[in-house]
Design a protein around this nucleic acid. Sequence first.
RNA 1: GGGCAGGUGGCAGAGUGGUUGAAUGCGCUAGUCUCGAAAACUAGUAUAGGUGCAAGCCUAUCGGGGGUUCGAAUCCCCCUCUGCCCGCCA
Length: 427
Amino acid sequence: MHDLKSLRENPAFYDQNWARRGLAPQTPAILELDEKRRKLQTELQTAQNRRNEASKEIGSVKSKGGDAADLMAEVAALKDRMADLEAQEQDAATALNDLLSALPNMLADDVPDGADENDNVEIRRFGEPKTGNNAAVDHVAIGENLGMMDFEAAARVAGARFVVNKAGIARLQRALAQFMLDTHTTEHGYTEVDPPLLVSTDVMYGTTQLPKFREDQFETTDGRWLVPTAEVVLTNLVREQILDDSDLPLRYTAMTPCFRKEAGSAGRDTRGIIRQHQFYKVEMVSIVRPEESEAEHQRMVNCAENILKKLDLPFRTIVLCAGDIGFASRKTYDLEVWVPSQNKYREISSCSNCGDIQSRRMKARFKRPGAKDTEFVHTLNGSGLAVGRTLVAVMENYYDPTDGGIFVPEVLKPYMGGVSKIVKASS
RNA sequence: GGGCAGGUGGCAGAGUGGUUGAAUGCGCUAGUCUCGAAAACUAGUAUAGGUGCAAGCCUAUCGGGGGUUCGAAUCCCCCUCUGCCCGCCA
């Protein structure tokens, strides 16, 4: 949700900012509705005030044994008018809310201009990708040759965009998740959370998956939603709370399955596990004071990068341009890992500073010491990392063409029971 | 799934139709006292919105929604959450 007061005071700022995302001016319609709504509200409140007064008078007249018929007639008339005003005010408020909740966050000043992903800006690289190897074996071939990835079985039990991992690959993925979680909790100061995977509609609204991105979500028959990312649950942990200043910053991490319909992605990344209806992701979420969110953002990106560095996977970090940035985000860094079989970098993490757009929707506030008013917190989220895609990167970057095996990255060995290479079981 | 009991301010806990946004206690903040502290005393201490230059005034909120009434924390209905009992179940 957007700050109406601020929007009223500076509509040009909002329109200019939205224009960077390619949106037509929005504030004229908003301001008109807002004014209409407030006018109705004031009128309604005046009527309510008179009703309250009259009711008190009736009480006192009656207690003295007097006749309050005139006053009661006045209130009866007032009630009709109030019902009408209230309905109108509700309509205006709903319309205003619908309008506002469909509009994306304000971009940070230093977000580069641009129309789409081609205008994103690379800011740093790590590692040396093995380029030019068009014959690189992809993770599907590697996994199937090892007999540890079964897409046909997955299709039989669940349909397209699922996989069945087995044996060494299944364990490797578990090791990856474990390693990420341990690193975030012991080195990066995050608190591990084991959250619900089914959440309410309000929660999905809070982090902006609803109402605009309904098509990509799995809804249950009893009105709940499967989480598309742990961001949803972790961020909503502070919903409807007034936090104490000393509680901040809060840093949460969780490893969860994520469920997505991928409704708009038909035909994209159909091979392999790059884009699935269900995948594991280790997520980081920070809840911070407004003035701290920029620094926290940098910190979070470093935490995500650190995982890739420890795994010794080549990657690059980019800033998303105005045209490619997500709905809730003020500014987003993507980490892209080198995928040899595709001979390019692919997204493996996305770290976003959402400012106060989510906290406004969630009513997540905090109070500074001695302050009279509450303030909205800032929320940030980032993948640390997408486990399935990390598995792809490890399989392909650590592939041994001489025997079709996969070397286990050094940092994962403790999680693999001493196994240093995944090889085909001898039959 | 069935039944019973509940959900009131930061916490505890009154309140069962009429200045009750809400007693009282605790906690917290400020002041008095003190060399300082404790104790005691005094005052203050919810959230959101509207309106106003401002002081302020007004509206709403006692789990959520709807209803009855001139008037609802108090009465009625639905939902939800918590506790307990029974049933079922990983």
